[in-house]
């Protein structure tokens, strides 16, 4: 287990806690300053997940709900990319988990009451572990946009939720991937919690025709960058364990 100190988090990359156009954040945002400190072994270490904890269909949302018996409804897509750290090093062995609405914009969650129907063959979650070069891949369907109670007529753009573990618990990140060209992106109060347009662009996955499978699936590429860990200039080892 490595315990290299973490590079401090650049908060300018992230939305602030208090973003009144996203109404739920108003009462759920800390108002006092965060207590800053250099990282300790607690933040510099983190859980290591193994392939033995995963199943063979875990990264295939088209078939994992029925364990291969049926296929989900929707536009078939591949979502792939790499997990890197701030120094551009691949993060290998990183657990990447995703969840999403079905093609109609409905989540398989007891608290989602949207009247778009559930797809009997779609669960909406997937997980995988990155390869030596930090790469990952999911097979899924394009999620539908959906309305949500915030403003009088707010809609979420098509998106996939991502949860990522680096090698250190201090690198823990949850975010959302959006799709190139979606006209709802600039209209979404959750997207717009991020101030800098350049930072929003880093959440928008481009169509990747080089990875599309002819007569099968379109593809989108989504790279993820985690906080870096300090290193000497002569070290250039891949991240991970």
């Amino acid at each position: 287990m490595t315990t290299a100190p973490l590079v401090h988090r650049d908060r300018a990359s992230h939305p602030p806690a208090y973003t009144p156009r996203y109404k739920t954040s108003v009462a759920r945002s800390p108002q006092l300053p965060l207590l800053a400190m250099r990282s300790t072994p607690t933040e510099q270490s983190g859980p290591v997940f193994g392939h033995s904890q995963l199943g063979p269909l875990d990264n295939d949302l088209i078939t994992n709900f029925t364990q291969g018996r049926e296929r989900a409804i929707g536009e078939r897509i591949i979502v792939h990319g790499r997990v890197l750290d701030g120094f551009g090093r691949p993060v290998r062995g990183a657990l990447v988990e995703i969840w999403q609405a079905n093609a109609g914009g409905r989540y398989r969650h007891k608290n989602d009451g949207y009247f778009a129907p559930l797809d009997p063959n779609f669960g909406g979650c997937g997980r995988t572990i990155t390869d030596e070069d930090g790469s990952y891949e999911f097979h899924t369907v394009r999620p539908g946009a959906y309305p949500w109670p915030n403003g009088p007529n707010d809609w979420r753009p098509m998106h996939i939720h991502f949860s990522v573990f680096g090698a250190a618990f201090g690198q823990r990140l949850i975010t959302q991937m959006y799709f190139e060209g979606d006209p709802l992106i600039p209209r979404c109060p959750i997207v717009q919690t991020i101030g800098a347009p350049e930072a929003i662009d880093r959440l928008v996955a481009p169509l990747d025709m080089n990875r599309a499978l002819p007569m099968d699936s379109l593809a989108y590429k989504f790279d993820i960058v985690l906080r870096g860990r300090r290193q000497s200039v002569f070290e250039n080892k891949p991240e991970g364990t």
Binding site: R9, D10, S13, H14, P15, Y22, S25, L84, D85, G86, F87, G88, E97, I98, W99, Y107, R108, H109, N111, D112, G123, G124, C125, H161, S163, L173, I174, T175, Q176, I190, V191, T193, I194, A199, I200, R202, L203, I224, V225, L226, R227, G228
Partner: peptide
């Protein structure tokens, strides 16, 4: 250096993923 991917809320349905 690469900037960290911006965070977004986990939302109300985080349980179905995690």
């Amino acid at each position: 250096y690469l900037a960290e991917t911006p965070s977004q809320t986990a939302g109300p349905y985080v349980h179905i993923g995690c």
